[in-house]
Amino acid sequence: MAKRRTFGIIGLGNFGRAVAGELARFGDDVIGVDVDGKAVDAMVETLTRALIGDGRDAEALREAGIGECDVVIVAVGEPMEASVLALMNAKLLGVPRILAKADSKMHHRILSKLGADRVVHPEEEMGLHIAQVMHNPLVRDYVSVGNGYHVVNFFVPEALQGKRLAELELLEGHELRCVGVMRGSKFVGDRHMDCELAEDDRLLLLGTRENLQAFGATL
């Protein structure tokens, strides 16, 4: 069984609240800190601990238990000073892994230079995600797996229904790998290349964005 980890969330706005709530749902210990008492009150019943505190105050974070966390998410965006100081204080307290939210490229550069292990742009990333899905109506969802590769969930169009996966020549013709096929809620992977595609099936394909887009344009 995986070791239960403790997460600290500094800032309980929309982003911080969503991350904290989901981690709590997974069964992790979550400590939430925010200067806004109403934001804290809204999470008291959900988190392991939810406390009023200022991320710019290292002592307040220490008393909240942030220094004992395995991972801290600095979910404060504005003002930038609060985000930067919260990150620096988490580093000062010896937190081994820190993720931070950025609202601009400059903000991103500063947080990276100060030692954030990962910097995220939730609004920008969600916008890109929605644009990708909206651009091709056959794409239900996708996820980045690093190094420029993505796994995309494609609806099977009428033109491919009745064909076997082997007939698509995904690797030879498109440099794509089929991870499997979803048929309703069932994963069809045992038959793999002999699998005959049916209406409402979904293809799980791994490849670069360029190759996935080129394949999608042919459907």
Score class of each variant (00 low, 15 high):
141 D>A: 10
155 F>E: 10
148 G>A: 12
142 Y>Q: 04
176 L>I: 12
149 Y>V: 09
166 A>K: 06
167 E>I: 11
182 M>C: 09
171 L>K: 10
179 V>E: 05
169 E>Q: 15
152 V>M: 08
174 H>D: 12
146 G>F: 08
178 C>G: 00
174 H>T: 12
170 L>K: 02
176 L>K: 00
158 E>T: 13
164 R>W: 00
174 H>E: 13
163 K>G: 04
153 N>F: 12
149 Y>R: 08
143 V>N: 01
168 L>M: 10
175 E>A: 15
186 K>A: 13
152 V>C: 07
168 L>Y: 08
142 Y>F: 13
149 Y>C: 04
186 K>Q: 11
163 K>M: 15
141 D>F: 04
154 F>S: 05
172 E>W: 00
171 L>F: 10
182 M>V: 13
183 R>A: 08
144 S>K: 01
180 G>D: 01
172 E>K: 07
172 E>S: 12
155 F>K: 13
165 L>M: 14
176 L>Q: 03
183 R>W: 05
153 N>P: 08
146 G>N: 11
178 C>K: 00
154 F>C: 10
177 R>N: 14
150 H>C: 10
184 G>A: 05
147 N>A: 14
185 S>V: 11
151 V>I: 14
161 Q>D: 00
142 Y>L: 14
186 K>I: 14
176 L>E: 08
158 E>G: 13
160 L>Q: 00
151 V>L: 08
142 Y>T: 04
172 E>L: 07
186 K>V: 14
185 S>Q: 09
180 G>H: 02
156 V>T: 12
185 S>K: 06
145 V>N: 04
185 S>D: 10
153 N>W: 09
185 S>W: 05
185 S>Y: 05
151 V>Q: 06
156 V>S: 05
174 H>K: 11
175 E>V: 14
154 F>A: 11
144 S>W: 02
158 E>V: 14
149 Y>N: 04
184 G>K: 01
185 S>L: 07
